[in-house]
Every structure is written in structure tokens, then in C-alpha cells.
Amino acid sequence: MSTEAVRIEGVSKTFDPDVRALVDIDLTVEDGEFLVIIGLSGSGKSTLLRCINRLIDPTAGRIWLFGEEMTGAQGARLRRLRTQIGMIFQQFNLVKRHTVLTNVLSGSLGRSSLLGTLLLRYSEEEVRQARAALERVDLGGRGRSRADRLSGGQQQRVAVARALMQRPRLILADEPVASLDPALRHSVMRHIESLNRDEGMTVLCTLHDVDLVRRYATRLVALRDGRLVYEGSPDDFDNDTFRDIYGTDAEPATGQLLGAAGAAGEETA
């Protein structure tokens, strides 16, 4: 049994007309890791995550998911591979007008019957699983609320429950706490950590906040201008390496400050 969750070889992405978002990335993610990617807004973090589940098609290079090639997969095969990858977004990306429960249930779209899902009908077993997922993220009583009635932190927990419902082997988390109040960040990060530790899902997460990186990452890589510039353990991640990656103007003093920098970069992230 291979222990590679994701294998990325020579991946580049060039956007029109001439923006090189990713340049020749080689990266292997081990099964069970909590790998954090850091880097400035626009350094290519989001693009890299989206190349893995093919929301964005890389211009060059190849990507494997648990030994199966992701690049080049089409149609049903691509959809089947995508069911293996849960994704959590900075802006939560819930279906705002649907209920919380329906949002969680949508995690199972890839394996449910087409007609049923189009009519928003799910089996009792699926509804039970969705309720359990909501319990897990401490939102047991909120299943019938409309998603946009919830606070940001609660919405992101619904997104975690959606990922839980999907039962993937890999989680891609794109700035999962950058839009949240700093006080709520740990509440969401702990749930993502639980997906990693208790469910055995591999997590690939982009973050801005040094404190969070040190607290949650098992390994750390950094991107700058679309290139992989650093790889190491979060314990070795000190202020000097931080300045190397973010540039000398950056200020690693407190997590709050960096969090603010992250929030300012939301539009471009």
C-alpha cells in the first residue's frame, strides 16, 4: 500500500495572457499528513490546491492521487476521483438559500442517485449521517436553518461537516480561517485537525498565521511567486525563515497581525 496521498510532478500553471501562477512544482504529500502551505497572497497557493482537484487544469506537469493519475482524467473518472477530495474554502461557499442540512448532504452528491439529488431527496441513512456530521461540528440543532442565517464561524463548520459527509481521503483547505474573527479560528481549525487525526484524512491547508502553522502543521512548505521555496518542520519555522518567505517588510510578531494581512488579501486569495 502506497503511503503517498498526492504526488505532484513538474506542475506549472500559466494564466492568460502571461501570468505564471505556478512554476514547475514538485511535491509529495504523505498519507495522514497535515501539510500546511504558506506564502503571500498571489503566490500560487490557491492555484496549487485547485490544480489537485482539477478545478483548475495545470498547464504542464502531472498529479497523482493515491496512485491514480488525476491529470488527464475526464468525465465519470474525474468525478469519482474528486469524491476522494473534500474542499474547504475561505468564503465557505455554502449554498446560501439551502438549509444547513441540505448543504451537508450535498457532500454526498458524488455517490448519490442523480434523480434523487436533483429533487433534494436523500435516503434516511444519508440524512442520519448528515445529522451526525453536524453533531460533530457542534451544530446539532441548526440543521433546519438557512445557511446564510449562520455566523461566519458556524458556516465554516457547516463546510467542515459537508467535507465529513463526503468521506474523502484528502482534504484541501484554502485559507479556511482567513475570513473569520481571530477568536474563532481555533474552533474551526480544531475540527479540521479532527478530520486529520480521528478520520485519518490527509490535510493540505493554506494558512497565513504563524501561530496556527506551529500549532497544527505536521509539515510545512512555502510558495513564493509560484515556486516552492521552503520545506521543513513547523518547529524550525522561526522569524528568519518567515522573513525569507514573506520578504523583509513582513512582521511576524503576532498571529493577529498576520491574520489581518491575510484578511486584506482575501479578494486575491
Binding site: 482537484n53 478545478l55 468525478r79 469519482r80 476521483l81 474528486r82 469524491t83 476522494q84 477530495i85 473534500g86 474542499m87 474554502f89 461557499n93 455554502l94 449554498v95 446560501k96 450535498s106 457532500g107 454526498s108 452528491l109 458524488g110 455517490r111 439529488t117 463546510a159 459537508r162 463526503q166 484541501l172
Partner: peptide, 10 residues
């Protein structure tokens, strides 16, 4: 939301 739903393999 389109991205999120696409990502589930829908």
C-alpha cells in the same frame, strides 16, 4: 458554491 459542489465530484 459552483466550485464547492464541483469539488465534491458532482
Amino acid at each position: 458554491p459552483v466550485e464547492a459542489i464541483t469539488a465534491t465530484g458532482a
